[in-house]
Amino acid sequence: MQSYVSLTLSNISIERGERDLCKGLSVVAQFGRLYQIVGENGAGKSSLLKVIAGLLRPVEGEIFLDDKVIGAAMNQWPQDCLYLGHQYGVKRLLTVEENIRCYCPNASRENIHSALAQLDLLPYQNTPVKQLSAGQAKRVALSRLWLSDQAIWLLDEPFSSLDVKGRALLESKLEQQLKRGGLVILTTHQALLRIDAQSIELTL
């Protein structure tokens, strides 16, 4: 994993359709911390995440990784950035393992095994995802957090459709990421129990 100090959003303005979602947003996000984007429904939380991931072009503004301008395109650095959107790209027709192998082709057999064990997915290793529940499908997507070592995690509603145990598990994984010097930016409506989250406020 590469180590960085900060990810800086400088003067970011986003427009969706006819609406301004945020105007001149500037945030310095320190690595080793977790940032929670908060705001009402429709305030543009997911859009901001997409902008950071490079999926959406901001009307104005730039993003810096340390001092380097990376434009508005984190996706130029796929080894550094992991984005899980609202729909997280898990194929319903593929089995759990095939899905994981598609996104993390370099993960070793043992690592996959242990990640699946932690996520309680081991019995379903060769089951097509369409036969799993929504929460289990979410866990399949989240297994990428266990298996790849990007420094920046951008997670859109990672806690949705997870049960209590799953949430605790994810939170401890996020803690690990922070400990090893990673950066997590996420949107969620739930309060985090154990992690001290910085918040990025979006107002309508």
């Binding site: 991931a53 490079g54 999926l55 984190m74 996706n75 130029q76 650095w77 796929p78 080894q79 950035c81 984005y83 959107g85 609202h86 729909q87 997280y88 790209g89 898990v90 194929k91 319903r92 996104y103």
Partner: peptide, 17 residues
């Protein structure tokens, strides 16, 4: 179609490929 609805297209775009 399916890639669009299950979010795979987003993953293509952020994959760096």
């Amino acid at each position: 179609k399916e890639d669009y609805h299950d979010g795979s297209l987003e993953q293509w775009l952020v994959s760096g490929l």
